[in-house]
């Protein structure tokens, strides 16, 4: 063989080896993350039973009490509010864009939804402090006949709702695209109105995918940190109404990065919360992605 060719082939093989190494790195990253966080949270897992950590409500790091329940429930409340607010308008918007709007309108609106996805979390937080918090304090709380500082579960939920708009709309649009046109045409030919077609054909066919979109939205909301940190109030108590402050897991992690190395077990508790958050999001994400892969396969 000509040495030039041998050199070229060798270069190609070397490149392949590097690429495979990088591929392994990418596929193992998740395992490394779970392993790394687990390793660092071992001290607290050894000193206290997991059930105690997860189900106790007393959070007093100085006394060595690390009950994570208020934070877990805070996360659930905030996420629940966000999705209750966000899911109906997002589904309706996605239905409009995919079933009613002309292609030109759709192409016109999409960049704006992408823009909404691109706005940094901190900017959402600033907006929340400027608009949503005063709204809750001055209008919503008095209307309910109570007092609230505005920094509340509701404020965090409303800000989060806007933040999950792009995920919900984007994924739902993709799902609606997988519904075959023939199905819609058959329904319209039988005399159904457009809305009836949506209700009885499109939504029924896309049900699994829409569920996946919602699950993905939920998992997005679980992990949002900065914006929530800025508007949720951050009081380590279980919220009893949406006007109470909440202290979600990500806010706990972000708020304590500074002092956690000075108190024993504190850093392990914080990294255990990160691990819990990671596992929670991982489970939701995996579920929704598996549904979406199946939806896509069926469409092909």
């Amino acid at each position: 063989m000509d040495p030039g060719i041998r050199w070229r082939v060798r270069k190609s093989k070397a490149a392949r080896a590097v690429m495979i190494a990088l591929l392994c790195f990418c596929n193992l990253l998740l395992v490394a993350m779970i392993g790394g966080l687990f390793w660092r949270s071992l001290p607290i897992l050894r000193s206290e039973p997991l059930s105690e950590l997860l189900l106790s409500t007393s959070w007093a790091p100085l006394k060595g009490e690390f009950g994570l329940l208020p934070f877990l429930l805070g996360t659930l409340w905030v996420t629940g509010v966000a999705n209750l607010v966000a899911v109906p308008p997002c589904l309706l918007t996605a239905i409009y864009l995919s079933e009613y709007a002309r292609a030109r309108t759709r192409e016109l609106v999409k960049p704006f939804i992408d823009l909404l996805a691109g706005i940094p979390s901190v900017v959402y937080g600033v907006w929340g402090v400027l608009v949503v918090v005063p709204l809750v304090r001055d209008h919503i709380a008095p209307a309910c006949g109570t007092f609230s500082s505005g920094y509340s579960t509701l404020a965090a939920g409303l800000v989060l709702a806007v933040m999950v708009f792009p995920t919900l709309i984007g994924v739902s649009l993709e799902v609606f695209e997988t519904v075959p046109h023939e199905a819609r045409e058959a329904s319209l030919a039988l005399g159904a109105t457009r809305w009836q077609t949506v209700k009885f054909v499109v939504l029924r066919k896309a049900a699994a995918g829409v569920l996946a979109a919602v699950v993905l939205g939920v998992s997005r909301a679980f992990g949002e940190t900065m914006a929530v940190l800025m508007v949720a109030g951050n009081v380590a108590r279980i919220p009893h109404s949406v006007l109470d402050p909440a202290y979600p897991l990500p806010a706990l992690i972000a708020n304590n990065y500074g002092e956690m190395l000075s108190i024993p077990l504190y850093d392990a508790a914080i990294l255990l919360s990160s691990l819990l958050l990671l596992l929670l999001v991982f489970a939701f994400n995996l579920a929704s992605r598996l549904i979406l892969i199946r939806v896509e396969r069926r469409a092909r």
Partner: peptide, 25 residues
């Protein structure tokens, strides 16, 4: 397909968790 799935999942991991993982590193 597997690699795409794992990237999709990594995409969904919250940035605070990347921060915490970076901290363990």
């Amino acid at each position: 397909t597997l690699t795409r799935l794992s990237f999709d999942i990594l995409w969904g991991i919250p940035s605070i968790v990347y921060g915490a993982f970076g901290f363990t590193l």
